[in-house]
């Protein structure tokens, strides 16, 4: 384990305090990583407080459905988390969600809970290329056969937001 320096401990306290404050106000805006898609959206697939408490259960439930039953249009998909919560670095490349200070790592590090997911799962959103299209996506949508996807990541996000709105 990494030795925690005074600064880090102080930062940990700060983050913890921030979380406590957020939990009390039930306002979700700023716990997400700046610059990620999620930062521009109102809510996750469920209310923020609910997601904070129960995301692991949702993921575990749906992983069973998708791996064993082949239900891929699941609501709670890990790649969905990554797509929304990953932020980009200065060069415009995605940073892994498990990198220091990023969405998954920041909280899991603070709570000292190991995120085993990314030992196998991809840590950054996958840019849509024509070779990997057919596998459905977190919205339960798929593109018509043979058509190259003309949706940009932003457009997907808008659609996502739109669905949640109404």
């Amino acid at each position: 384990m990494r030795s925690s320096t005074g600064i880090k401990r102080f930062a940990g306290l700060l983050v913890g305090g921030l979380f406590a404050a957020l939990a009390m106000t039930a306002h979700s805006g700023s716990a997400v990583t700046q610059g990620s898609k999620a930062a521009s959206m109102d809510a996750c697939v469920a209310l923020t407080a609910d997601m904070r408490r129960n995301h692991m259960d949702y993921l575990q439930h749906d992983r069973h459905a998708s791996v064993r039953k082949g239900i891929r249009d699941i609501k709670n998909s890990l790649s969905g988390c990554v797509d929304c919560h990953a932020s980009k670095d200065d060069q415009g490349n995605y940073k892994p969600v498990t990198a220091e200070g990023e969405f998954c790592e920041a909280c899991h590090n603070y709570t000292a809970v190991n995120v085993a997911c990314f030992q196998c799962h991809r840590k950054t959103p996958q840019e849509m290329t024509s070779s990997v299209t057919t596998g459905g996506n977190k919205l339960g949508l798929m593109l018509d056969d043979g058509e190259a996807p003309a949706l940009s990541a932003e457009e997907f996000e808008q659609l996502h937001a739109k669905i949640l709105e109404d």
């Binding site: 064993r68 082949g70 891929r72 249009d73 459905g136 949508l141 798929m142 593109l143 058509e147």
Partner: peptide, 15 residues
Amino acid sequence: GVMLTVANAGSDEGV
């Protein structure tokens, strides 16, 4: 030109 359709409609039961 891109029409979106729902995959596996009613896929609650799975395969």
